[in-house]
């Protein structure tokens, strides 16, 4: 079987997402973009035009890369399903607003190519595309990806980096309201917590997003942080801080429920969410990275195929 024979058209099982009830990928992506819009607007309000520049460049590069890849590999889905725009925007959301152009372009291209197209386009990738790009950039250009270092001119600080380097006393004075309204440094969209919550709620109400993963993710983060806080209040930040600082909300509503890389069963989805949420706090506490959200989701996604094996036993099977 060294030669590859194309699968017969009749028996082809297409890659997920399978669900089809008149909805299209394009529609889903359009609604996701709509849900992300408030956060994008807030990002421009808080960080000014540089944020807009980063988002625009990231989206443009993502679309161009996808077009080129799709041209190179005939037979892949069309580019106009807006997925590239979503990837580009989500990747931009993880960057500091001052990110230089080459960082945005390289990261966005990596997201689309390594995170999606090498696996045959939408639905094949075992990892969430924007996170792949983020991790590659984080590994390569630590300085430019560091929120505090790259945003020296801003009067805001990154609460998670402060927690990491200076301890919980340093963040005790930060009000939760400031965190909610994006008055913190971090990924330019990831910190617009209130706007992201609104967008997430919109997707949940419209039924475009099943609540298992987001809620389990937030619960996992909250409970793990609570345990740490309960064991040693002097050394750990309060659980609500962990929920509102950094990218936890973006992760819960937009990154973790990524269609091709998250589980599909009810129980698996809950396990997946809890696990990712728990890992967020573990990485924040022990790891070298201030915000553990992207890495936590990547790790949980590696477990997706295994978690998906938890399924109810079919009737009549011993």
């Amino acid at each position: 079987m060294s030669t590859f024979s194309p699968p017969s058209p009749l028996l082809t099982v297409s890659a997920p997402p399978h669900a089809h009830c008149g909805r299209t990928t394009r529609g889903l992506m359009a609604e996701t973009l709509f849900a992300l819009a408030p956060a994008a607007i807030m990002a421009v309000l808080v960080f000014g035009l540089p944020a807009l520049r980063v988002m625009a460049l990231s989206c443009a590069v993502a679309v161009i890369c996808e077009t080129l890849c799709a041209r190179a590999m005939a037979g892949t889905p069309a580019v106009d399903d807006l997925n590239a725009l979503v990837i580009g925007l989500l990747f931009a959301f993880l960057l500091p607003a001052s990110a230089p152009w080459w960082l945005v372009a390289a990261g966005s291209a990596t997201s689309v190519v390594l995170g999606k197209m090498v696996f045959g386009g939408l639905g094949g990738s075992p990892l969430c595309a924007p996170l792949v790009g983020w991790a590659v950039c984080k590994l390569s250009w630590k300085g430019a990806m560091d929120y505090d270092l790259s945003m020296l001119s801003s009067s805001l600080t990154s609460p998670l980096a402060q927690l990491k380097h200076l301890g919980p006393q340093a963040v005790a004075g930060i009000s939760l309201q400031d965190l909610l309204l994006g008055q913190q440094l971090g990924g330019l969209g990831a910190v617009q917590v209130a706007a992201l919550l609104a967008g997430g709620a919109y997707l949940l109400i419209r039924g475009r997003l099943r609540p298992h993963i987001p809620l389990a993710f937030l619960a996992g983060t909250f409970l793990t942080a609570l345990i740490y806080f309960y064991l040693d209040p002097a050394a750990c930040a309060p659980p609500l801080f962990h929920l509102l600082a950094g990218g936890a909300v973006l992760g819960a509503f937009f990154l973790a429920p990524d269609c091709s890389s998250s589980p599909v069963g009810h129980v698996p989805m809950i396990v997946f969410g809890l696990l990712a949420g728990c890992l967020v706090v573990v990485i924040r506490v022990y790891g070298v990275y201030p915000d553990g959200v992207p890495f936590a989701i990547l790790l949980a996604e590696l477990l997706t195929p295994l978690v998906d094996r938890i399924r109810p036993r079919p009737l009549g099977v011993g």
Partner: peptide, 27 residues
């Protein structure tokens, strides 16, 4: 079940996957 491009099937995609796993383990 994914439509991995032909040139990438087999070893190459396995290596890329290993690379991405290694990337996640950087956590």
């Amino acid at each position: 079940t994914a439509r991995v491009p032909r040139a990438l099937r087999g070893m190459p995609i396995g290596l890329i996957l290993a690379g991405l796993m290694s990337l996640a383990f950087f956590a």
